[in-house]
Amino acid sequence: MKKIMNSASTYVDDVLAGLVLAHPRLALGGSANRVVHRAGGARKGKVGITSGGGSGHLPLFTGYVGQGMLDSCSIGNVFEGPNVESCIDAIKIADGGAGVLRLYGNYGGDRMNFDMAGEFLEGEIETTTVLGTDDVASASPDEGKKRRGVAGIIYAYKIAGAKAEEGADLSAVTATAAKAVAATKTIGLALSPCQVPGSAKPTFEIAADEFELGMGIHGEPGLWRSKLKPADEIVDDMLSRLLEERPAGHGGRVSVLVNSLGATPLEELLIMYRRVAAKLRETGIDIVQPLVGHYATSMEMAGASISLCFLDEELEHLLSAPSGSPFWEVK
């Protein structure tokens, strides 16, 4: 597979160098330059929020560092979690003296590394953890804690970030982040794979006329595979699975994210969004702040995901608060 790069071994560092040059509000730090953080550093007295994950998903994760969002983000090699040292660095950089929330996707390696980092810093910095678990295809609702974190985690970044910006303490920011995670559900579909730089083959194989519903952002197997269907039919299936998990007593307002996994163009996302909007209207649900574009990708994988964030008054208020990350700005 053709890629524009210098070498597989410099791929991530070259990307990060470009990222901070293109977005001067971001800076690189940590002992191995694998932490992206707000250029101004941590704000004294504010709860810090840090995240992390493997490279290959931009704008996730590092692209959401900024005012009202993340304070820092440790980044690993492509599809490989950040190492413990980078997690430690990211927590330290995010710390403004009021504790740090570790907010990241539910993946084994990331969990182990952030847990170890927290243990190394015990007695030095107070930390809490909230895991992104929005992918409804990755486990059944009664095993919700086993679900993976995918595109929907950006709602937790935004909402928890706004809460921290308001001056809430660590326990309140943590509770709000957990509430945002619980309110957000995502399902994805894949059309074609990506290839990790330096790897000899793609992450998975799929026939040219097939798609897979529920596939994860690293090619984890989904729910089923079939011949490609019309967009409206696919969206209806995805949406019905998300609406099955609508919280009891939900007031009827959602934010919708229709996200490209990389190669799928905006045109196709808008075809999907058109159907999502129509179906939600039919169901009596109002859409607030729709997001359509590239928010969490899997390099050049073709496919898309739909996320619904079921809002209440507090979540909607925090969602609309100003934020200044390079890839999600609210004014």
Partner: peptide
Amino acid sequence: ATTGSSLGT
């Protein structure tokens, strides 16, 4: 400082 993989950790 070298790996973030599960096996490495």
